[in-house]
């Protein structure tokens, strides 16, 4: 059943670097007749500290977030990894803590954006854009933690002028991994270099993903390669931004 209203958790990366993706996501949700609530006190899900082993620090930040969603309505997140953090790791992070029940209440209401658009809102999209070839990068957390790997393709499948090109090693990690990119930069660089090659080889003009971490990584590598190696740089966009651009009148 379609809910009347939802909470939107925008994620810190979108807040600071990709706000357009966040605005587009809100617009897509609102267009479906859903009231979007954006608690202004939200910051970050706590994942960076959690993945770095700083659990107490992660919990402190997460604790501030779980207070922000008192109503029993869905929490929609335009990121597989932040959604995965709240849905699967909050229960671990708060295990045995006094506010464990509050954390579980949040975790159980979390949806990744594309999952919510497809499975709950059952959106019907009409393509208003020019013909374009697109490659999709599904983040590892969307694929494996959230189990929503096919949602972007389902959405793009509704767009008559969009042709999805499949790259080699599609399910392989792009090498971002949060602090991994900083702590093991050589391996991360090798991974993103391969990823950009595979995407570029499809000839797609555009890359979409549901995670801004991956986008920052892959598009950063595209831009670097364009500048230093004269290679083409496919345009990289969050799926929400891409969908909104092509479907709003």
């Amino acid at each position: 059943m379609k809910p009347e209203s939802i909470y939107f958790f925008g994620t810190c990366l979108i807040d600071l670097i990709y706000p357009k993706a966040g605005v587009s996501a809100v617009q897509l949700l609102q267009r479906e007749g859903v009231k979007v609530i954006y608690p202004q006190a939200q910051t970050c899900c706590g994942q960076p500290a959690w993945n770095s082993g700083y659990r107490n620090e992660a919990r402190k930040v997460a604790r501030a977030q779980i207070q922000l969603f008192p109503k029993n309505i869905p929490i929609v997140i335009p990121s597989g990894s932040c959604a995965g953090m709240m849905k699967t790791h909050y229960p671990e992070l708060f295990k045995g803590e006094p506010d464990e029940a509050d954390a579980l209440k949040v975790a159980n209401r979390v949806y990744e954006l594309t999952e919510f658009l497809v499975d709950v809102l059952k959106v019907q999209l009409q393509d208003l854009g020019q013909a374009v070839e697109v490659a999709v990068h599904t983040s590892c957390s969307a694929r494996r933690e959230m189990g929503v790997a096919d949602k972007i393709e389902q959405l793009l499948g509704q767009l008559s002028n969009v042709d999805v090109k499949e790259q080699a090693y599609k399910a392989e990690c792009c090498g971002f991994g949060g602090t991994f990119a900083v702590k093991q930069p050589e391996i991360s660089a090798a991974m993103v270099t391969d990823k950009t090659q595979h995407i570029r080889a499809t000839g797609a003009a555009q890359l979409v993903s549901q995670d801004c971490g991956c986008l920052m990584n892959i598009s950063g590598a595209f831009a670097y390669q364009a500048e230093h190696e004269g290679k083409s740089a496919p345009k990289a966009q969050h799926i929400a931004e891409f969908l909104w651009e092509r479907t709003h009148g």
Binding site: F8, G10, I14, D15, L16, I17, Y18, P19, K20, G22, V23, V26, V36, I37, Y38, Q40, A181, V182, P185, S188, A189, V192, T193, M216, N217, G220, A221, A223, Y224, E227
Partner: peptide
Amino acid sequence: AWTSVRSAPKLAEQTLHQQLKTLGV
């Protein structure tokens, strides 16, 4: 290390918090 194979990310002109406030969300 980040910029050895990538360009540096650019911060937005306005945060999502600001933009959604302006839009009256």
